[in-house]
Structure formats: structure tokens, C-alpha cells
Amino acid sequence: MPIRTNRGRAAVYRKLWGWPLRSPRHLGVAVFLAALVLTAAGIVVPKLIGAKAAPQVPAGAAAPPGVTSLVPTPSVLTTTSPLPTRLTSTPSPTSSRGVAPAPALEVVRQWAEQWVNHDGSAQEWLARLRPYMTEEYAAVMASVDPANVLATKVTGPVRAEASFAKSVEAEVPTDQGTVHVTAIETNMGWKVAAYEQGRP
């Protein structure tokens, strides 16, 4: 039967609160139950509060304001531009074999005729070659002893090996083999910039 008066409720409350004081055994049971309830509350309550305070944020999603995400995000390395490619190919000839500027072949011929002429001193030999060479190559030829040049005459016409936009590679036949000569176009016209003596 339900309690309908305040006096009846107060009597029930006094009975409940007075139960632990009835005997030492009741007091021990009451203390044990209180300690058990407090321990359970100390374990469960922090977990509930922590779960509500720090919600799980999926990887890759932005954390809500005021919440620090504990999920590490992977670092991504990106390249902004590809590395430059080194060009190793040689320039293609602008004309085929045998077709080269006539002034270039003429300079090679004149240079070759003076190159095989050993009359006079080394300074005179170099002076005859200088008008047909670049200044840089004239300085290199200054160290060459004409006595080491075995060819004594040009034995045939100058032939173009390859022709580029600003240079021509030609071959000159001599009595001591073919000489390969490179001529380049400068502000002063075509000039010899290098040579290599071939085999007889």
C-alpha cells in the first residue's frame, strides 16, 4: 500500500537511515556498499565525461572548433615542377654533306695552303696563318712548331664533312693524309677554330 502522508514518508526515511546504526554488522555492510558505489562512480563517470568532451574525429576531417584532434595526419610531399631534362643530343646539320657556305670552304683552303708552307721561321709561318684563324686559336697555334707539320702540299679540293648554322667541318687532303678543319662564322667572317691531322 503506497505511503500517502508526509509523516509516513519521514518514518520510512528514519528507518532507512537508522538501519546502519542498529548493529556493527549493519554499519560494516553500509560502509562496504558506499565504498563500492564510490569506486564504480570514479571509474565510470570520467569515461562518460571524456567521451563527451573529446569526440572521435575521422582521419582527414577537420576537428570542430575548440577541439584538438589527436589523430596524426600523414605528411604529403609534393613536387611543384619536374626537374629539367639535360639535352645531350648534338645539333642536327642544317645542310647535307658537300653543301656548305663557299666562304667557309675558301677560308679552310687558304689556311691549309699556308699550313703546309714551312718556309721561313715559326713566327713567319704563324703570321701567314693568322688572317684565317680566330684570335683564340692563333694563341694556341703559337705553341706549334711548324717542323712537326709533316704535310708539304694540298693534294685535292676541300670537301665539307658537315655544315651547321654557324660552323663547318671540312676535310683537306694532303700528301700526309687528310686534315680535318673546323671553321666558325664570326663578326670578321669565317675563321678556322680547330684542326686535327688524320692518317696518311
Rank of each mutant, 00 (worst) to 15 (best):
G8C: 03
A11V: 01
Y13M: 07
Y13I: 02
Y13Q: 09
Y13F: 14
R14F: 10
K15W: 12
K15V: 02
L16E: 13
W17F: 15
W17S: 14
W17M: 11
W19P: 00
W19G: 04
P20V: 05
L21S: 12
L21D: 14
L21M: 13
L21H: 12
S23E: 07
S23K: 00
P24A: 15
R25F: 13
R25E: 12
L27W: 13
G28Y: 04
G28V: 02
G28W: 07
V29H: 06
V29G: 09
V29K: 09
F32I: 06
L33A: 15
A34S: 14
L36N: 03
L36C: 13
L36R: 01
L38P: 00
L38A: 15
L38N: 06
A40H: 03
G42D: 12
I43E: 11
I43R: 06
V44Q: 11
V45T: 14
P46H: 08
K47T: 08
L48F: 11
I49C: 02
I49T: 08
A51D: 10
A51H: 04
A51R: 05
K52Y: 12
K52W: 12
A54M: 07
P55V: 00
P55R: 03
V57E: 03
A59R: 10
A59M: 07
G60A: 02
A61H: 07
A61M: 10
A61T: 06
A61W: 01
A61D: 14
P65F: 09
G66P: 01
G66Q: 05
S69Q: 05
L70P: 01
L70Y: 09
L70E: 10
V71T: 14
P72M: 09
T73M: 09
S75M: 07
V76M: 08
T78F: 01
T78A: 06
T79Q: 14
T79D: 07
T80H: 04
S81F: 05
P82I: 01
P82M: 08
L83F: 06
P84D: 03
P84S: 06
P84I: 03
P84M: 04
T85W: 01
L87V: 14
L87I: 11
T88Y: 11
S89I: 01
S89Q: 11
T90G: 05
T90I: 03
P91T: 10
P91Q: 11
S92N: 01
P93N: 07
T94G: 15
S95I: 00
